[in-house]
Computed example of a mutant assay.
Amino acid sequence: MLTRATPSRAKAAAHPAADEESPLFLGSVAKCFQVLEALNTAGRAVGLTELAALAQLDRSAVQRITHTLRVLGYLRQDPATRSFTLSGRMLEFGHTVLATDQLRERAQPHLEALNRRTAETVNLMELEGHDIVYVARYPSLHAVSVDLHVGSRLPAFCTAAGRAILSQMSDAEAVARLKAARRTAMTRHTVTDLAGLQQALALARAEGYALNDQEAFIGDLSVAAPLLDPAGQPLGAINIAVPTPRWQLDAVLARLVPPLLKTAAAINKELRYL
């Protein structure tokens, strides 16, 4: 049985620091989301003092924010422990995001077919800031090495999907994104140097798919292909992820890359009419 790994949820800022200096930027709203993100990252009930530390905010500010969010129905507070959790009302936002995502809608039947054909985990990811976000996931019937779900985030620079998306950008834009990202190694195999990453993007651009060999998680092999809008700009990527105890790299390339590319081509054909 494979060990399930929990992905790091630490996120780099998705917006340039210069944007925070704009007179349009509301610091109070930003603090509110710091609290929500801290609760989301914790994934459990959190008391006020700990929540202030996790959100890196003053306790009195967090007290006002949590009170407001509780009154509005976005937080629950345990009457005995006084700790906070996200409420079910937060699910409404996620449902709306998924329901209005045209890329997800167009890709869904193709991803389901790919999942049935390969019997392996198939995902749809989109780029947000320096991360990729899972917007659709069809798990394998076999044991998997990584426990992820819709909404999970991973660094783009060290994932197959992230590299597939970056490979379709101009060299200048891709390099700028890589330089701005926090390129922290997730395993001993993670490529973090700029030259190595540029080489990986060039290879992905030439071959039409990106490969990840245990750079995000030990025991995880992944291949991903980009999805493009009518102008040829990247909208996201699809990938197939498999565990190394059951798969060798040469088998992945021979048996999984062809159906992956065929599926990506079919989705891209539909995306021409968005």
Rank of each mutant, 00 (worst) to 15 (best):
1 M>H: 12
3 T>Y: 05
7 P>I: 02
7 P>L: 13
11 K>V: 11
12 A>W: 12
13 A>P: 06
15 H>G: 07
15 H>Y: 14
17 A>Y: 12
17 A>P: 02
17 A>N: 08
18 A>F: 11
22 S>C: 10
23 P>H: 10
23 P>S: 08
24 L>C: 11
26 L>S: 14
27 G>M: 08
28 S>Y: 09
30 A>C: 08
30 A>N: 12
34 Q>G: 09
34 Q>M: 15
35 V>D: 01
35 V>L: 08
39 L>E: 03
39 L>G: 04
40 N>W: 11
47 G>P: 13
50 E>H: 10
50 E>W: 01
52 A>K: 01
52 A>C: 10
58 D>S: 13
63 Q>D: 14
64 R>W: 08
65 I>Q: 01
68 T>K: 13
71 V>L: 14
73 G>E: 09
73 G>Y: 05
75 L>Q: 03
77 Q>F: 02
77 Q>D: 03
79 P>T: 06
80 A>D: 14
80 A>F: 11
81 T>L: 05
82 R>G: 03
88 G>L: 02
88 G>S: 08
89 R>Q: 14
90 M>V: 13
94 G>N: 10
95 H>P: 00
97 V>L: 15
98 L>M: 11
98 L>S: 13
98 L>I: 06
99 A>H: 10
100 T>M: 11
100 T>I: 02
100 T>D: 10
107 A>Y: 00
107 A>M: 05
113 A>V: 04
115 N>C: 15
115 N>Q: 15
116 R>E: 14
117 R>F: 10
118 T>M: 08
118 T>P: 04
119 A>V: 08
121 T>H: 07
126 E>M: 14
127 L>Q: 12
128 E>K: 12
128 E>G: 12
133 V>M: 14
134 Y>K: 06
139 P>Y: 02
140 S>E: 13
140 S>K: 08
141 L>T: 14
142 H>G: 08
147 D>P: 03
149 H>L: 11
151 G>T: 08
153 R>P: 01
153 R>G: 02
153 R>V: 10
155 P>K: 03
155 P>M: 06
157 F>I: 00
162 G>P: 08
165 I>R: 00
166 L>M: 14
167 S>Q: 10
167 S>H: 08
169 M>N: 09
169 M>V: 02
170 S>W: 03
170 S>L: 07
173 E>V: 07
175 V>S: 11
176 A>Q: 15
180 A>C: 08
183 R>D: 03
186 M>Y: 10
187 T>E: 06
187 T>S: 12
189 H>Q: 14
191 V>Y: 01
192 T>R: 09
195 A>G: 05
197 L>T: 00
197 L>A: 01
201 L>P: 01
201 L>H: 00
203 L>P: 01
205 R>E: 07
206 A>Q: 15
209 Y>R: 02
211 L>K: 04
211 L>N: 00
218 I>Q: 09
219 G>Y: 01
220 D>H: 13
220 D>R: 04
220 D>A: 15
222 S>C: 15
223 V>M: 07
223 V>G: 00
224 A>F: 02
231 A>K: 11
233 Q>A: 15
241 A>K: 00
244 T>A: 09
244 T>D: 07
245 P>W: 11
245 P>D: 10
246 R>I: 02
246 R>Q: 15
247 W>T: 01
253 L>P: 03
256 L>N: 01
257 V>K: 04
259 P>Q: 06
259 P>A: 07
259 P>T: 04
263 T>P: 02
263 T>D: 06
265 A>I: 05
266 A>Q: 12
272 R>G: 07
274 L>F: 13
